[in-house]
Design a protein around this nucleic acid. Structure first.
Length: 258
DNA sequence: ATGCCTCAGCTCCTGAGA
């Protein structure tokens, strides 16, 4: 099975690129973040025609997530249970033998702000819930836009971004604690090119100048780790006209869908 | 640089993203 995550920064704008990408990359599961549309606007018929079942959790203007799958998704859940949230950030479902969580983690703006505090609370709630999910579903994939780098290797300018958002000790502590529940950064299970990033600023030719961050991740449970065969970031769509600022991350697992 | 892009929306400016 292949799994992918992509922050599309408006599905209305990016739908043709997503459909084109799925044609070229017929993954079994694709989770999307920042679809930025209400549920009534979601283009489910286009995905049906492309051969995908869709689950979606939209919101006006900001956020919004979706889960596309070759086979129907079951036991669908929206957002983190027991965490009151007026933002649409997370969608979960069973696809074949795997529990899939697609998440758009809060940005956090800057340390010391209300948004940063919200990010911390969201991360703590996520961790408490994922701990339970792992017990119920040993085959678990947690992927999405984490808005957190693991370490300096994920940052184009580690010195310049030290203690800045996406790179603070507090965020990395939370990410580490999440991993410590029993997850693995599938990307680093494999040898990767230097300067591997999943996001580049639109401004100042960030992509062309290789000024990026790796903030989109696919974490997999210990049960799935021995089945991981490949993980890569596909920078092809970042070269499109009107690209998203994020690139898709793709994971291949040696596991059958049914 | 409180800047630079891009997107949505009570759209010709502002807020938010990262």
């Amino acid at each position: 099975m292949q799994f992918a995550t992509w922050n599309v920064n408006s599905l209305s704008v990016r739908l043709p690129q997503v459909l084109d990408w799925l044609c070229q990359n017929p993954v079994d599961v694709l989770v999307l973040q920042e679809i930025k549309m209400t549920d009534d606007k979601f283009p489910h018929e286009a995905f049906t025609q492309a051969g995908y079942h869709a689950q979606w959790f939209g919101q006006k203007t900001y956020n919004g997530v979706a889960l596309l799958s070759r086979t129907p998704a079951t036991q669908v859940l929206k957002n983190i249970p027991d965490f009151a949230d007026d933002m649409a950030r997370l969608i979960t479902a069973n696809v074949g033998p795997v529990r899939v969580i697609g998440a758009y983690f809060p940005n956090g703006q800057a340390p010391g702000t209300d948004k940063f505090e919200y990010k911390m609370q969201w991360l703590k709630s996520l961790r408490a819930w994922v701990k339970e999910e792992l017990l119920a579903h040993p085959n678990l994939v947690l992927m999405g836009d984490y808005n957190i780098t693991f370490d300096d290797a994920d940052v184009w300018d580690p010195e310049g971004m030290r203690d800045q958002i996406h790179c603070t000790d507090e965020e990395r502590y939370q990410l580490g604690a999440l991993v410590a529940l029993g997850l693995n950064d599938s990307f680093r299970l494999f040898e990767q090119p230097s300067q591997s990033y999943s996001w580049w600023d639109y401004r100042d030719f960030g992509f062309r100048r290789k000024r990026g961050l790796r903030i989109d991740h696919i974490l997999i449970s210990h049960a799935l780790k021995p089945l991981a065969r490949a993980c890569h970031i596909d920078t092809t769509p970042r070269k499109n006209e009107r690209p998203s600022d994020h690139a898709p991350v793709v994971l291949t697992l040696d596991i059958a869908q049914s």
